[in-house]
């Protein structure tokens, strides 16, 4: 597991391979997704090759950082001990301008105030010295 000196006690991603690259770019302050050099398709989560056209060529491309709420659940009873004191909280699926979706949280909207298609923008959260998670906040329409 990731070791650090902070008191952050929630699960963290394992920094290896493409996942390390994804989170390192978050730490640098811009949300990036993979973009195929062949067919220009965006993709998330990171994959080795393009499932649309078969190309192995791709690059990390910057996202607008903007999207809208696609769906969510409100966890009233945590089923993982690390989230016991966080309830109610809402894991949210955000659909980005680029078309890819990611699982995240919207930090400044109460779970019962979330709405489908609500505009949101990325708001990075440096939870440890090594790891910055992309979370979101409400954006202007």
């Amino acid at each position: 597991m990731t070791e650090d000196s902070s008191d952050y006690r929630h699960p963290l991603p394992e920094l290896e391979g493409l996942t390390q690259e994804f989170y390192d770019l978050c730490k640098e302050g811009t949300l990036h997704f993979q973009r195929c050099a062949g067919c220009r398709a965006w993709r998330h989560v990171p994959r080795e090759m393009c499932p649309e056209c078969g190309s192995w060529d791709w690059a990390w491309a910057p996202s607008t950082g903007r999207g809208k709420v696609f769906s969510w659940t409100v966890v009233a009873r945590a089923l993982h001990p690390a989230f016991k004191d966080d309830t109610p909280y809402a894991p949210v699926i955000v659909e980005m301008d680029e078309g890819v979706r990611l699982l995240t949280q919207v930090t400044d909207v109460a779970p019962d105030a979330l709405e489908i298609d609500m505009p949101v923008e990325v708001a990075f959260d440096a939870v440890t010295p090594e790891i910055t998670l992309p979370r979101f906040r409400r954006a202007a329409a």
Binding site: H10, P11, P13, E14, H80, A82, V127, L133
Partner: peptide, 16 residues
């Protein structure tokens, strides 16, 4: 994928 992209946000179990 679930470990690296879901669990950090508390998206941990089937009903969720």
């Amino acid at each position: 994928i679930a470990r690296d992209y879901y669990l950090p946000y508390g998206f941990t179990a089937p009903p969720q």
